[in-house]
């Protein structure tokens, strides 16, 4: 039971990170119907930006809680802004010119972009893993029995709280603001939205920006939680987040979050109770199984094929 509880906590933390990345996939898929293969690498870039910002601000080793919170907020803002710029640039360079092209073209450029980002970071930051000392330490002991301690660390609390808060804020943006309205309009019918005066290109760009900003939060959280990053983390995290988006029903925002949580839990429990080596196989198999038997996901709408 204690073991189970601990895994549950770990799984929810990991799931929050996947959920934040998955939103980027699901929004982009919803609006232009393509898989933004480079999104995982945007997440990786954000983790690096976060790392550089943390070292630049010199908060490693600081003990004052107030300073740490302030500095981390600053890091988060820096990472979000710079990562958004990356997201915008990728869309502008690789996807916008191909908007009217055949369907596979943007997917191929997305793979190209993913290779570019990975190798760019590898060249500029080096191929070796970057370890970061834990910045947020401490936590609560929830239970103790037979020497097994169930821990809830501060960083886990922060990750889940930030994720839930961002999700709420984000849902409100989509539901209430003009941007959200334009976004939903484009999702339903891009041509019609353009006819009634929605700036489609701008809306799509903003979708990428918002997606990248959320991925940046995930990247910084990942960095703080695991403390180790390298240029390759984006690939696996990206595929898993995509799996989460598909599982939750692609195009659906609550679905992305739900899918993220499920994937995080499945992966954690699989590693805990079966084998660590095959945890990726478990996640990938779920992707295949969901697509085959439940193509519209848990919360998604069935797709109507238009001729």
């Amino acid at each position: 039971m204690e073991y189970f509880l601990q895994q549950l906590i770990n799984g929810l933390t990991l799931g929050s990170i996947y959920g934040l990345i998955a939103i980027g996939y699901t929004m982009v898929y919803g609006i232009i119907g393509m898989i933004n293969f480079a999104h995982g690498d945007i997440f990786m870039v954000s983790a690096f930006i976060g790392l550089i910002a943390i070292i630049l601000l010199g908060i490693v080793g600081t003990t004052s809680v107030f300073v740490i919170i302030l500095a981390l907020l600053l890091v988060l803002v820096i990472a979000m802004v710079l990562t958004s710029a990356w997201g915008w640039t990728v869309e502008r360079m690789a996807y916008r010119p191909l908007r009217t092209s055949f369907r596979l073209a943007p997917l191929i450029t997305a793979i190209g972009m993913s290779i570019v980002l990975q190798n760019f970071v590898q060249i500029t930051q080096g191929a070796r893993v970057k370890p970061l000392q834990p910045i947020i330490s401490g936590g609560y002991v929830l239970m103790e029995k037979d020497g097994f301690v169930v821990n809830l660390s501060n960083i886990q609390i922060i990750i889940v709280v930030v994720t839930v808060a961002l999700m709420a804020a984000f849902s409100l943006i989509i539901a209430l603001t003009p941007l959200g309205r334009a976004q939903r309009a484009c999702e339903q019918d891009r041509k019609m939205a353009a006819l009634v005066g929605v700036n489609v290109d701008r809306t799509i760009s903003l979708t990428f920006v918002v997606g990248a900003a959320l991925a940046a939060v995930a990247g910084v959280m990942y960095l703080l939680y695991y403390g180790v990053i390298d240029f390759y983390i984006g690939f696996v995290a990206g595929v898993k987040a995509f799996t989460a988006a598909v599982l939750g029903g692609i195009g659906s925002l609550p679905g992305a979050m739900l899918g993220g949580m499920l994937i995080g839990l499945i992966e954690t429990f699989w590693s805990a109770y079966f084998t660590v080596e095959y945890k990726d196989v478990a996640a990938f198999s779920i992707l295949a199984i969901v697509l085959i038997f439940l193509p519209s996901g848990l919360l998604g709408r069935p797709e109507v094929e238009k001729v």
């Binding site: 790392l51 550089i52 070292i55 630049l56 710029a85 930051q125």
Partner: peptide
């Protein structure tokens, strides 16, 4: 400049006592 400032302009290096820039 915005894109490259972090990634090209600053490189993280592995120092003895943690990461340096």
């Amino acid at each position: 400049l915005a894109l490259f400032s972090g990634l090209i302009g600053i490189r993280t290096t592995a120092d003895v006592g943690g990461l340096g820039l």
